[in-house]
């Protein structure tokens, strides 16, 4: 706990991290206290106003064309879904990815091969069509979306962690612990895990950001819970409700800015964490690329970047042995 608090203080001191923390704080506040902040209750059917109103003092962002709900209130409630999906998925991905990565890296052998084969299969199946198929078969809900994100998301992290574990495996203190007869589990928990913890925390922040964008996309396609209010779904409603036809740009811009702020804040926090953990930025060459190339196909990009990191490793190792390729 103390470690967590000191981490937050360090992020606050970092200029970009401060911005991220502020915005994230506002969003979390909105999500938790939505019923208090929002001027109208979007779920209350009797409190609807006239449909398709333009922004005014009573309705800062106007009302929807299809149902007459207040858009500003919906915006505030929408924070709940985005943050919840992003954080839960991020944390679960981190957990599973860590476990898989550490096992594969440390235990090696069959476990390693098995995990890597599973990763290969996962990477090939296209996620968006699979999500559409599974929500068709098993019903549309955020649980299903989180489930699919976690199932596909742990692969990238597992590879990264595995690479790091391979390095740690050969470090002195791990070898010493092995020699002194410590059990595998003990070593993994006490020695390896702290070594990759920085990677984990950073990845949670960054992947949460990526997940929020992906969730917006899935909600936009209508794959989330139809009764929940989420920013992606607001965009979908705007499109099908005729915002484009009527020219109600505020209905489109508002949820977009919501998505932008949530992703931006987490990315800033991730960037701050990265610089805190790696002040020398030597190994962060690869991390930098990881961060910069986050976009909707981030899983594949992570894979590519981590391979690049391995190659760099191999190159350095080869250089040490005395052969330099040009």
């Amino acid at each position: 706990m103390k470690g967590a608090l000191s981490l937050i203080v360090k992020i606050w001191k970092h200029p970009q991290g401060r911005v991220g923390l502020l915005i994230a704080g506002v969003l979390v506040f909105c999500a938790i206290f939505a019923p208090l902040i929002a001027p109208y209750d979007p779920y209350d059917v009797t409190a609807r106003a006239e449909k398709g109103l333009s922004p005014s003092w009573q309705h800062p962002l106007g009302t929807t064309i299809s149902t007459g709900q207040d858009i500003f209130s919906m915006l505030i409630y929408g924070a709940r879904v985005s943050l919840m999906v992003g954080l839960i998925t991020g944390i679960l991905t981190a957990l599973i990815g860590a476990v898989m990565g550490i096992c594969a890296g440390y235990v090696g052998g069959l476990c390693d091969t098995l995990v890597m084969r599973v990763v290969d299969v996962m990477l090939v199946i296209p996620t968006l069509p699979l999500t559409i198929v599974l929500t068709n078969l098993f019903g549309k809900s955020y649980f299903m979306i989180i489930f699919i994100f976690v199932i596909f998301g742990w692969t990238g992290l597992a590879r990264v962690i595995r690479a790091q574990v391979l390095v740690l495996k050969n470090s002195n203190y791990v070898k010493a612990a092995e020699l002194s007869g410590a059990g595998r589990w003990h070593i993994m928990m006490r020695h390896i895990l702290p070594g990759v913890s920085h990677l984990l925390i950073m990845n949670t922040a960054l992947s949460s950001a990526g997940i929020m964008v992906a969730e917006a996309g899935l909600s936009f396609l209508g794959l989330g819970d139809p009764t929940a209010i989420s920013w992606g779904k607001m965009l979908a409603d705007a499109q099908s409700g005729g915002a484009l036809l009527f020219g109600h740009w505020w209905w489109i811009v508002a949820p977009g800015i919501g998505i932008f702020l949530s992703v931006f804040s987490f990315m800033r926090i991730g960037l701050a964490l990265e610089e805190i953990f790696n002040p020398r930025m030597k190994r962060a060459g690869a991390m930098h690329r990881l961060f910069r190339t986050l976009n909707n196909t981030y899983i594949q990009k992570v894979f590519a970047e981590m391979d690049e990191a391995e190659r760099e490793e191999a190159r350095e190792a080869a250089k040490e042995k005395g052969g330099a390729a040009v």
Binding site: A216, F220, A238, Q239, W249, I259, F260, N295
Partner: peptide, 13 residues
């Protein structure tokens, strides 16, 4: 900015 803004949002705009 482009990482944080989903492509479909830009498309809608």
């Amino acid at each position: 900015v482009t990482t944080a803004l989903p492509a479909f949002f830009l498309a809608l705009l």
